[in-house]
Amino acid sequence: MNGDHDTAFYTERRTYRRRRMADAATFVPFLGGALFLLPVIWTGPAVLTSSVMIYLFPVWAGLSVLSVVLSRDLARGDADEGDASDAMPQGPADKDPQE
């Protein structure tokens, strides 16, 4: 960590949140894949290319924005600790009764 000794509650929350952000970052491509593949099942006779465009481009832009949010939260210095490993320096904080 960056050596900030805030309250245990604060640190614990941040750690927890960063881990969930890492989970989300893992999950996002699957969400994106599902959204991108969704038009495949639009097999009705009157589906127009233009309507697919109107669906697809906003979804695309939305994924970019989501990625902005996620990558900002997985803040730079914490990248390593945010890894799936649970053996983190502040491991005991996880068992903090305040959780």
């Binding site: 890492a22 970052a25 893992t26 996002v28 491509p29 994106g32 894949g33 970019s64």
Partner: peptide, 16 residues
Amino acid sequence: VTIYLGPTLVMIGWWT
């Protein structure tokens, strides 16, 4: 557009 959708998915899944 599929040619761009693939790389998009890879990039937003950069973390993994």
